[in-house]
Simulated scan of single mutants.
Amino acid sequence: MKTVKEEMKESLRKDRWSLHFDGKHPEGREYQAVVLKNPDSEIKLAALDLNDSKAESIADGISDVIDEYKLWDSINMIVADTTSVNTGKQSGVVVRLQRMFTSRGHQVPQFISCQHYVLTEYYA
């Protein structure tokens, strides 16, 4: 009999998703929520507990989740806030993830900045 997680792994691969992630770093730890969304569903996929808030650590943690669920071919969009760790042109989390998609032979997901944060920063 398959576990719920095994069933999720099989079913999630069949759909197209946007990958959302957001982090907080209390007490020197980095916590990242990893969520999949599409018009029909929202799946809270993982809550990562990372050693630091560096782009490399965050991208590697998210990559591990994508590997575990075999979602490289199912993600067509990345959504994240506009912090520099996420959006750095050379080595931000988004660029690192997009390179990982390319290196694995998959289409590069489009990056969309989280509009809530954009508006909040504009009116602050």
Rank of each mutant, 00 (worst) to 15 (best):
L50P: 00
S41P: 05
Y31H: 11
S113E: 12
P26K: 04
V4F: 13
D40K: 14
Q115P: 06
K9F: 01
Y122T: 09
F111W: 14
G61I: 01
K14I: 11
D22Y: 08
E6M: 07
D22M: 05
H106V: 08
I58A: 04
T82Q: 14
A124F: 14
A80E: 04
A46C: 10
V34R: 01
H25G: 14
D22W: 03
S53D: 11
L119A: 09
A46E: 10
D15K: 13
E30L: 06
K5W: 06
K54Q: 13
L45W: 01
S41L: 15
L48F: 08
N86R: 04
K9Y: 00
Q115A: 13
A124S: 14
E56N: 09
A124T: 13
T3H: 07
E68M: 07
C114T: 05
L19P: 02
A124M: 12
Q110R: 12
V118W: 07
T87F: 03
D73W: 14
F21E: 04
V94I: 07
N86W: 05
V85T: 15
G28T: 08
D15W: 06
L36Q: 02
A47P: 00
D15R: 08
N51R: 11
Q98F: 04
G92W: 02
A33G: 10
S91Y: 08
P26A: 10
E68D: 13
I78M: 02
I62D: 00
A55R: 00
D81E: 07
S11F: 05
A55M: 01
R99F: 08
A59Q: 03
N51T: 11
D22H: 08
E56T: 11
I62K: 03
K89P: 10
Y123L: 13
G92V: 04
G92N: 02
L50Y: 04
F21T: 06
V95W: 00
V118R: 12
L19K: 01
S103L: 15
N76K: 08
V65H: 04
G23N: 06
W17M: 05
M100E: 11
R104V: 03
L36E: 00
M8Y: 10
Q115Y: 15
D60W: 05
C114P: 00
W72L: 01
M77D: 02
S74W: 00
I66A: 06
V85P: 07
Q90N: 12
D64W: 03
H116W: 13
N51Y: 07
R13Q: 11
R13W: 03
R104M: 07
I78Y: 00
R96S: 13
S53V: 09
H116D: 09
E42H: 13
V34N: 02
V35P: 03
R16I: 15
N86F: 06
A47S: 10
D73M: 09
V108P: 00
L45E: 02
I43V: 15
Q98R: 06
M1D: 07
L45V: 09
T87R: 12
A80V: 04
N38Y: 09
E10D: 11
E27S: 12
V79W: 03
L45K: 00
L12N: 02
S11M: 12
P26H: 04
T82C: 11
S91G: 11
E121V: 14
V85Q: 08
N86Y: 05
L19F: 03
Q90P: 07
T87L: 10
Q110Y: 11
A55E: 01
H25K: 13
N86H: 07
D73E: 15
T3Q: 04
D52N: 15
R104I: 03
K54G: 06
R99S: 11
S84R: 12
